[in-house]
């Protein structure tokens, strides 16, 4: 199933000795400690770790929503660690799609409009209708988030992330608030996007069952990468269980 063997791997992002320290009053809390990681095009990576392990912080480094305290995040020859706000905004706008645990939809906008929030930003987006079609939500386009189930909201969030045609799709506990059946369907969509569109996906989770659907599993403990392994037997999402 893994197609990394059939194409020449090409690094989308390279993380070098990245540390992130949070200061809370007098106390310094290291969330990431000298992490090295390379993300290659078309990869589906699952980052696994207990809560507080630093996985979200790592995702923020990858997504350009935060800067490391030290180290470098290389993307197309630029170090995001030293990029200014404008450059980071540009990076997030053009390259990254985000999916959040609690969906982060704008409550006052319909599903369609929530997708538009993303499509209005870029030059060549998908039609919001098509994006909703891809997550099988065309019939709910005019509903407000409050009128959608959790799974539907997360699918809107996926459509919103997809619509920009990002290089990288980052999913932060995308099924954290969903039941098993809904989770399977959401994960299935991600897996399909990765397979059919060769979209690079990084998913973080504390659920040990989920990484089974990824090509590579990175386990993170106390801000350090404890293990990075290739998943030889990628499981179809509908077979995941917990």
């Amino acid at each position: 199933m893994a197609d990394s063997t059939t194409t020449v791997p090409q690094a989308v992002l390279r993380i070098e000795r990245v540390s992130r320290i949070f200061r809370m009053g007098e106390v310094e809390v290291p969330a990431l400690v000298e992490v090295d990681m390379t993300i290659e095009a078309g990869e589906f990576i699952a980052i696994l770790g207990p809560s507080g392990s630093g996985k979200s912080t790592l995702l923020n480094m990858i997504g350009g929503t935060d800067r490391p305290t030290s180290g470098s995040v290389w993307h197309e020859g630029h170090d995001l660690a030293v990029a200014d706000d404008g450059e980071l905004t540009e990076y997030r706008r053009e390259k990254v799609g985000f999916i959040f645990q609690f969906y982060n939809l704008v409550p006052s906008l319909t599903a369609y409009e929530n997708v538009q929030v993303a499509t209005e930003l870029v030059d060549d987006p998908l039609d919001p209708k098509d994006a909703l079609e891809m997550v099988e939500l065309s019939d709910r386009a005019s509903h407000f988030p409050a009128q959608l189930s959790g799974g539907e909201q997360q699918r809107v969030a996926i459509a919103r992330a997809l619509a920009k045609r990002p290089e990288l799709l980052l999913a932060d506990e995308p099924t954290g608030a969903l039941d098993l059946t809904t989770s399977r369907s959401v994960l299935g969509i991600l897996q399909r996007l990765n397979r059919e569109q060769n979209l690079t996906i990084i998913l973080i989770t504390h659920n040990a069952a989920i990484p089974a659907i990824a090509h590579r599993v990175v386990r993170i403990v106390s801000g350090r990468i404890a293990e990075s392994r290739i998943n030889e037997h990628v499981l179809p999402a509908e077979e995941v269980s917990w």
Binding site: G63, T65, D85, G86, T89, E90, R92, R93, E94, V96, F98, F100, N104, V106, V117, A118, L121, V122, R160, K164
Partner: peptide
């Protein structure tokens, strides 16, 4: 979220 999506 807007900023994460790429809004300046």
């Amino acid at each position: 979220t807007l900023k994460a999506l790429g809004y300046s």
